[in-house]
């Protein structure tokens, strides 16, 4: 049986003048996968993610995400994906519950759906006691867990996580990954970038960008064998140092 794809891109390129930030990349992400999207600073990850999430169009090449064309159906695409990063997540001067209502509304959920989702979410996160607390008064690690739950409130096919655990303490970082695994069990596909190489090892497949191109892609075991390494940290350094 052929695997269902959630991301499919072919020869995707984004050029700024003569500089190709993303240079002819092609890859697929399958349903239910945790896909690690790695690369050095400046390798083109952010530009690639912007094309995959419908924020910018490609210079050439094409693809689809969650069943929608990344150039021609960008509005539809945005409605059907989830996104969170450390930089952009929740509104600091709204309460936890207000953020949930706001994002639920943006994604077109009914009042009842929002309440049902919120109940389930607060229960899972054990955060019922802080539902009326301002986000600015909630510690970072908790905030990131809330942001993730809000990013998938509309049951998207895929969620994009851009360095979601940057600066988070080691225990909360692991709890965050528990949430990722739960989401996968609920049928959501996860696309994640991280600078923590232990987290890269939690992914089903990992791709590694170098100078705008996808230099290597495969399961952890495949990459460890191919680059004769014991850890993903070693693989990363071997590839990025050339």
């Amino acid at each position: 049986m052929e695997k269902e794809t959630v991301i499919e891109v072919k020869n995707l390129t984004k050029a700024y003048g003569a500089f190709k930030a993303v240079n002819d990349i092609s890859f697929e992400v399958y349903k239910g996968e945790i896909f690690g999207f790695l690369g050095a600073n400046g390798a083109g990850k952010t530009t690639a993610i912007k094309m995959l999430t419908g924020i910018i169009t490609s210079t050439s090449g094409d693809g689809s995400v969650a069943g929608y064309n990344i150039n021609k159906q960008r509005d539809k695409l945005k409605e059907n994906i989830g996104y969170m990063s450390q930089k952009f997540s929740l509104y600091e001067d709204l309460t936890l519950m207000e953020n949930v209502e706001f994002y639920g509304g943006i994604y077109g959920l009914s009042k009842k759906q929002i309440i049902d989702k919120a109940t389930l979410m607060l229960d899972r996160l054990h955060m019922n006691h802080i539902k009326d607390t301002l986000i600015s008064d909630i510690p970072l690690g908790w905030k990131q867990k809330i942001a993730f739950s809000v990013a998938i409130i509309h049951d998207p096919k895929i969620v994009f996580l851009d360095e979601p655990t940057s600066g988070v303490d080691p225990i909360t970082r692991r709890q965050f990954w528990d949430l990722i695994y739960q989401a996968v069990e609920d049928g959501i596909t996860v696309f994640v970038t991280t600078h923590y190489m232990d987290e890269a090892e939690y992914c089903d497949r990992i791709s590694m960008m170098v100078d705008g191109e996808i230099y290597a892609i495969g399961s952890l075991q495949y990459l460890l064998n191919k680059y004769d390494s014991k850890t993903m940290d070693e693989v990363f350094i071997k590839i990025a140092r050339g």
């Binding site: 050095a40 600073n41 600078h195």
Partner: peptide, 8 residues
């Protein structure tokens, strides 16, 4: 912070 493993 925010720096890739090699640059780090």
């Amino acid at each position: 912070t925010g720096v890739d493993p090699v640059s780090r």
